[in-house]
Design a protein around this nucleic acid. Sequence first.
DNA 1: CAAAAAATAGACACCGGTATCTTTTTGGCG
DNA 2: CGCCAAAAAGATACCGGTGTCTATTTTTTG
Lengths: 367, 367
Amino acid sequence: MDEKRKAPKLRDTATVVPLPRKPGAALTITDVAEFAGVSKKTVSRVLNREPMKAATRAKVEAAIETLGFVPNVQARALAFRKNFVIVLFIHDSTSPMAMKFQRGVLSAIADSELALAVRPVDRESPDLLADIETFLGRQKPMGAIFLPPLSERDDIGEMCQRLNVRYVRVGSAPLDMMSRSVWSNDRDVVTAVVRDIVARGHRRIGFVRGPSGFRSAREREAGFRQALQAAGLPVDEALMVDGHYSFESGVSAGAALLDAPHPPTVIFASNDSMAAGVTRAAHQRGLSLPRDLSIVGFDDNPVAQQIWPSLTTVHWPIAEMGALAARKLVPDMLLGAGEDAADLPSMVESTIIPRESLGDAKQGKSE
Amino acid sequence: MDEKRKAPKLRDTATVVPLPRKPGAALTITDVAEFAGVSKKTVSRVLNREPMKAATRAKVEAAIETLGFVPNVQARALAFRKNFVIVLFIHDSTSPMAMKFQRGVLSAIADSELALAVRPVDRESPDLLADIETFLGRQKPMGAIFLPPLSERDDIGEMCQRLNVRYVRVGSAPLDMMSRSVWSNDRDVVTAVVRDIVARGHRRIGFVRGPSGFRSAREREAGFRQALQAAGLPVDEALMVDGHYSFESGVSAGAALLDAPHPPTVIFASNDSMAAGVTRAAHQRGLSLPRDLSIVGFDDNPVAQQIWPSLTTVHWPIAEMGALAARKLVPDMLLGAGEDAADLPSMVESTIIPRESLGDAKQGKSE
DNA sequence: CAAAAAATAGACACCGGTATCTTTTTGGCG
DNA sequence: CGCCAAAAAGATACCGGTGTCTATTTTTTG
């Protein structure tokens, strides 16, 4: 190869370039182009998998490999006007469910160029919308995912549309267009759980509600009521008490139900934290579980396996929902060749996990 | 047309610019400069809080406010050669402790321009170092935080220094220079815990180890041994069993200890998950807690309060460590005016949380 | 009050990629 | 073999900020 010394128009002909690139300095696309004997643009084409002649592509790829070149995401983000980031907006960053969801998202993007940014926001704040808008404006992410209870606000979705930001809302019911939502069949699975409970002979079933501001709480309660009606059992409002999805509220709710004149033989709590609280209330009263009282929860959070007795619960596939949400959000980067975004489901099935805390109703007590 | 079509270098002079900026398009620093009647650079100075005349600053700030300008982080990142991001490298994204740590980091950066990127990596992978290097090369973050067990590898620290990336290593002992590490006094607090246990009359103390690959496990064991010696008690290797920091390993360890000929009257587990496992093993054997067996854990993870009986444990202030790590990593952005990075502590104190699972040794059994 | 010194503002190149448009190469076909 | 269309590669503007160096104030001082 006889290199033809073209007149180097480059600005740095004799002023800056002379020093042979500091070892620590970042490699750029220009270095790769020079090494491969092609232009910047050609390297860029390779990076973006644009159609091109196989021989040229191979040459460039070899150069990238040899030099150990890693493209600069900031520069790409600037040129593309899009950051290679997914933002996850959460309300309560302590929730184990939010963490599981996050893990699902991370697993979906693990092999891609995407990064995940987590942004906790305060649902109560009057500046909520403005905060989200600022964050989106700053980050210009590929998309945003909203977890409950944020996902239940239609104004957030509308804002994203106005800002032209892709988003997915996650919840316990369809909250938006199919392509923008991922949900689980909370209502139906609760109905099935209660059917199982009734099949074991229970007739007095306590229910601990979640906070009414959460769609999941309302769905689970609706499923409970439906199941009772289907089973021909009366809906006894005295057996339904309020909770806030917290362990402490579960303890109080359990106390209220167990100290009542006619306590239930089984208590369904709308999430596992509250079920753990009910379990504590039962232990405090010296009850033997599940002989004296059965308890059922929802979520399948880590506590469910670790308490005594282990909790019969509904496995809420939140990690799977996280992966699904990510794939729906950025299908062009996360789907394989044969996959089509339109084929991705929007609903995932929760399943019942039988463990120790649900037993048969005592013979004497039933009816 | 007498336009010279051979060399239309300034093609946009009269063709593109005229249109008055599409409403949806992003505002730039140029718009602000024009509005305020100053130059780009002056606006940049305001954004970067460089010293300047108060009147000019006020004028520019008013313009920013009026226009609702939000600077483009990608462009800044490109120009600065630094991304406004902190990366958190974790090995096990399911660990509740990692999640608490993450929350601490998020709270520290909540009001700043920083974002947090979470990157799970596989400690076992032979490509671990390369993976981290690639991620750092791509993201060019302000800094990186490593959690155990990643933080215990010196080669990762060396790599960061080579790449000129700031980092903080988090652990249960000083792992690096003060300015690059945050640690807790695991050994000392375990010693204190065992002193309390002994003070309650216990003489046969079981110990469940953590995985030997974790520095925290080794420190906690060292603290345990020290305390026994200080109390003049023999170190009975038969009362020390292995665990892997998992619930299941706690169940096995508990079973091994309780089924032995001379079971201990109290078991100290090196973390709460294993303590919960021991608790389960005890329940399975029909023991009444803490009458027949006391149990003590370490971490104060969410399960500790929710199991029965609630677990006496060591509160490992991991969220606080997260906030501290972030502040040490990027002090210039996260510290207030009066604060100095040199004043930030490196060690945080763990504290003992008395709950229900530690009781006095039975009269008959002691000695 | 003028000159010198210091502080502030502005012009322009630059960060490392992508987009557009132009030039060169390739390939099909009479 | 030559012509022309189509495909590939190249040159250069551009994304939206920051850094440097120069021009202009403003302040200080004799």
